[in-house]
Amino acid sequence: MAISFTTICFYLFSAILVFAGLRVITARNPVHAVLYLVLAFFTSGMIWMLMQAEFLAIAIILIYVGAVMVLFLFVVMMLDINVEKMREGFWRYLPVGLVVATIMVAEMAMVLNGRYFRLESLPAPQAVDVAYSNAQNLARVIFTDYAYPFELASLILLVAMIAAVALTYRRREGIRRIDPSAQIAVKAKDRLVIHSIPAEKEEIVAESTGDVAK
């Protein structure tokens, strides 16, 4: 049985994705974990590209790798997380983590064993028109059937961005800051101050005339 180049790429990218996912949760350095997560997202985009889902591949690379993960990386680096202090409570939170992980695995098993994921229940592949567009159909589904979940996801991302800014905001002494409220409260007449300076032209002329006479 001949193995195609696409199949080789799929298994190669899948192996890299599994390795990157494991390193995300096993890396000791938080910055290294974020970088491995970037690799996992990028590899997922390559797998979607192999599945001819170009829009999703480009979206995960531009949005998650190019924006979200860069934001996470900056947050992790600016927070200066004390890894040793975090490890002190590992065994204390381990039982709760195991319970949550067990529930997640059970839910995934229930979904994957459902009738929607059985091979015999899948319809036969149909011929696709040459003018078929994944992006157009995906946009139609997102902004019609899933409009509210899409807006909710954007709201969650907005809250995450505000939380990241709030966590990294620290007051430091010796740094000049701009107060927007004070700038707005300034009136036009307070911005320009005209001082009346008496003319000294006659005195200057008299002094210069006296110097010439001398």
Rank of each mutant, 00 (worst) to 15 (best):
I25V: 15
R118G: 01
I63F: 08
I178T: 12
R140F: 14
L37W: 02
L71C: 07
A15Q: 06
Q52A: 09
A20Q: 02
E207P: 00
A164N: 09
E207A: 08
A57I: 00
S121W: 04
G114W: 05
A185Y: 03
L157T: 06
L37T: 12
G210I: 02
L157R: 14
I142R: 04
M110F: 08
L157E: 15
D211N: 03
L112M: 09
A213S: 08
R170P: 00
A106D: 01
W91V: 05
M51T: 00
V105R: 01
M110I: 07
F143Q: 03
H32M: 05
T102E: 00
V165S: 12
G89M: 07
V159E: 10
L152S: 13
V159L: 14
I25P: 01
M108S: 11
R172E: 15
L94M: 09
R87A: 08
L192I: 15
G89Q: 05
L158W: 03
R176K: 12
P180S: 03
F5H: 13
T209S: 12
L35T: 10
A147L: 13
K201H: 08
K85M: 10
V128S: 05
A27H: 02
V75N: 05
L56F: 10
V100W: 00
M161L: 15
Q183R: 09
M78Q: 14
D80A: 06
L192N: 05
D190E: 15
A147R: 15
F117I: 04
A166L: 09
E151G: 08
V34A: 12
Y146W: 11
Q52C: 02
R177E: 09
M49E: 07
R171I: 04
A2I: 04
A67K: 10
F5R: 11
V130T: 12
D129I: 02
T144E: 05
A67F: 13
V38I: 09
R28E: 03
M161W: 14
R191E: 04
V159Q: 12
S196Y: 14
E207T: 03
A67H: 07
E200M: 10
F55E: 13
L50Y: 03
Y64S: 07
T7G: 00
R92N: 11
F150M: 05
Y93K: 06
A59W: 14
